[in-house]
Simulated scan of single mutants.
Amino acid sequence: MARTAEHRLPARRRRRLTVALAVLLTAGTAGAGTVAWNARSGSHEAAPEQPVRVHTTKVARADLSTSRTLPGTLGYGLPHTLKGSGAGIVTRLPAPGATTVRGKPLYWVDDRPVPVLLGDTPFFRALDKPGLRGHDVTVLAGNLRALGYDTGNTGEPAAGRSSRHEAQGDEFTPALSDALRRWQRDTGQKATGTLTPGQAVVLPRPVRVNTVTAALGDPVAGELLTYTSTATSVSVTVDATDVGGVRTGQAVTVTLPDDRRIPATVTAVSRVVQGGSADEQQAQTGPATVAVTVTPLRPADVKALDSASVQVLFTSTERKGVLTVPVTALVALREGGYAVQRPGGALAAVETGMFSDGLVEISGPGVSEGMTVVTAS
Rank of each mutant, 00 (worst) to 15 (best):
T230G: 07
V236H: 05
D218N: 12
S235L: 13
P204G: 13
D218S: 13
V238N: 07
D218F: 00
P219C: 06
T241M: 11
D218Y: 00
V212P: 06
V220M: 08
A200C: 09
T232L: 05
G217V: 12
T228Y: 10
E223D: 14
P219A: 07
L203H: 00
V201I: 15
S229E: 11
R208D: 02
V202D: 06
A215K: 14
V234C: 10
T211S: 11
Y227P: 05
S233H: 06
A221G: 12
P219Y: 08
A215W: 00
G217T: 02
V220R: 04
D218C: 06
G217A: 14
A215V: 12
D239G: 13
S235Q: 14
V209I: 15
T228D: 10
D242R: 12
V202G: 03
V238M: 12
T228F: 03
D218V: 09
A240D: 11
V209G: 03
E223G: 00
S229V: 08
V212R: 10
V207H: 01
L224R: 02
G217H: 07
T213Y: 07
T232Y: 01
V207T: 02
A215R: 15
P204Y: 10
V243S: 02
T211W: 01
V220F: 07
G222H: 04
L224Q: 02
G222P: 03
G217R: 01
N210F: 00
V234E: 01
V234G: 04
V220W: 04
A200I: 09
A214W: 05
V209H: 02
T211H: 10
R205P: 07
V220K: 08
L225W: 09
V243Q: 01
S235M: 11
S235F: 00
A200G: 05
A214S: 12
V201P: 03
D239Q: 11
V238Y: 05
T237L: 11
A215G: 15
L216K: 11
T232A: 14
T232H: 09
L224W: 00
T237V: 14
T213Q: 13
Y227V: 15
T230A: 07
E223R: 10
T226L: 01
V209L: 07
V243G: 05
V201S: 10
V220G: 04
N210S: 15
R208I: 00
A200W: 03
V207A: 03
A214L: 10
V207N: 02
D242G: 00
V212G: 11
V234Q: 00
A215E: 10
G222F: 04
D239C: 07
L224N: 00
V201N: 07
L224I: 15
S235V: 13
V209C: 05
T230Y: 09
V212A: 03
T230D: 05
S235W: 03
P206F: 01
V209E: 05
V202W: 01
T237S: 15
V220T: 12
T232W: 02
V201M: 11
P206C: 09
A231K: 14
A231G: 11
N210K: 08
D242F: 13
T241A: 15
V201G: 00
D218I: 03
A214Y: 02
T232D: 09
T226S: 11
P219K: 13
V234N: 02
V243D: 06
A214I: 02
V207Y: 04
T228G: 04
G217M: 12
V212L: 08
A221R: 10
V202Y: 01
T228A: 00
T232M: 11
R205L: 11
S233E: 15
V220P: 03
V243T: 13
S235R: 14
